[in-house]
Design a binder for these strands. Sequence first.
DNA 1: GTCTATAACGGGATAGAC
DNA 2: GTCTATCCCGTTATAGAC
Lengths: 208, 208
Amino acid sequence: MAGWPCEVRTGAEEDVADRRAAILEAAARVIARRGVRGLRVEELAAEARVSTALIYYHFKDRAGILRQTMEFISDRAGHYTTDLDPKAAQLGPRGELERALLMEFQDAPLVRENSTAWGELRASAIFDPDLREDLRRASLVWVQEIAELLGRVQPLGTPTALASAAERLTALVEGLSGRWLSGVLPLDHARNLLGEAIDVELQHLERR
Amino acid sequence: MAGWPCEVRTGAEEDVADRRAAILEAAARVIARRGVRGLRVEELAAEARVSTALIYYHFKDRAGILRQTMEFISDRAGHYTTDLDPKAAQLGPRGELERALLMEFQDAPLVRENSTAWGELRASAIFDPDLREDLRRASLVWVQEIAELLGRVQPLGTPTALASAAERLTALVEGLSGRWLSGVLPLDHARNLLGEAIDVELQHLERR
DNA sequence: GTCTATAACGGGATAGAC
DNA sequence: GTCTATCCCGTTATAGAC
C-alpha cells in the first residue's frame, strides 16, 4: 500500500520520501480544512511550502493527489490504532475494542483532521471510481480488525455474528462521525452513543 | 420550510412555483449524478431546460442553489415517508418503524437519487455553515420521528432510552447508506444489517 | 420572468531554466 | 528535483434585450 519500498533508503531517497510525505500531510490538513472540493493545488503548495509544479511532478494531477492522500490517511489511521498507544495491550480485549472504536472521537487536532479528511475522501469516492478501490480495502481491513477484537471479548460469537456486529459498529462510527463533524451532535454525546452501542452489541452476542 | 405560502395560488404564481420546483428537482438529479463538487450551473440549466441566467434569477448564486436544494430534498424525503405509502398505517408500529428506516435502501431511481444527493449535501455541510442549520433541523426531525415510532413499538422505554436508540439507528442508516452508495456494501447486505440493528435495539429496550 | 451573449475570474496544468 | 512564470480553459455571474 505504501508506494515506497520498505528497504533501507539512502540519503537522497530519504529526502524525497520525506518531501513526499510532507506534501501528503499538508494535503490532509488542507482537505480537513476546506474539503475535497475546496482543495486548491496552489493552497496545498503553500501549505507544504513548495511550488505547484513540484506537486504535479510528484503526483501527476489533482486526482493523483487525492488517491495518494487517501492511502496516506488510511495508513496513518491504521498506525495510530496500534502504535500510538503502546499500553493498549494492558487494557484487556474490551478496553482495546472501545479504544479502537472511540479513537476517532477526540478533538486532538491530528485525529480530528484525519477523521475530517477521511470522511471527505470517503464521500468523494461515491463519485470518483479512482478512490473506490482504496476505500473498499480500507473498510474491509477495519471491519475485520473490529470483528477480531469482538471475538476476543465474546469468544462464543459465531464468525457471522461477529462480522455483522463489526459492520454495524464501524458503519455507526462513520455515521456518528459525520454528525459530530457537521455540528449536529456534540462530541461527548457521540461518544456516549457509541459506547452504548458497543454494550448493546456485546450483550446481543452473549445471548445466543 | 417551504419558502412559498401555503395559500391557494393563482395561475401565474403557480407556473413560477412549478418552474422553481422543476429546477430544484433537476438540481437533485444533477447532484446525485455528479456530486456537489460536480454541480455545474450550466449542466443544471440544461437538465432543467432553462437558461443559466434564470437560475441565478431564482436562486441568487451557487450557494443559494445548494441551500434550497437541501430544503427541497429534505421535504421530499419527509413526504415519501408519510405520503407515498398510504397503507403504512396497516403495517402496525413495528412495520412502520422498519419501513421508515429501510426506506432509504431501495434502488428505485427517485429514492436512490434522494439518498445520494442528501448524503452529498450532508457531507458538504461540514464545510459550509450555510447548510448546517438546515441539516441540523432535518436531522432533529428525523430522530424524533424514529423515537416516536420506537416508543409505539416499545412503550416501556424511557424517553431517554428511546431517543438514544433513535439516534443510533438514524446515524447507522447514514453510515450504511454511504457504504452502499460507494459500493463498499451491496444493497441487500446493508438492509440485513439494518434490520438486525432494529432487532437488537428493540430487544435492548425491552430488557430494562 | 426568461432569454442570448459575454464579461470576469479562478484554478489546473505545463514550459523551460536551474 | 525544484523553481518561476504563464497559458488557457471551464465556470460563475451579470448586462441588457424582449
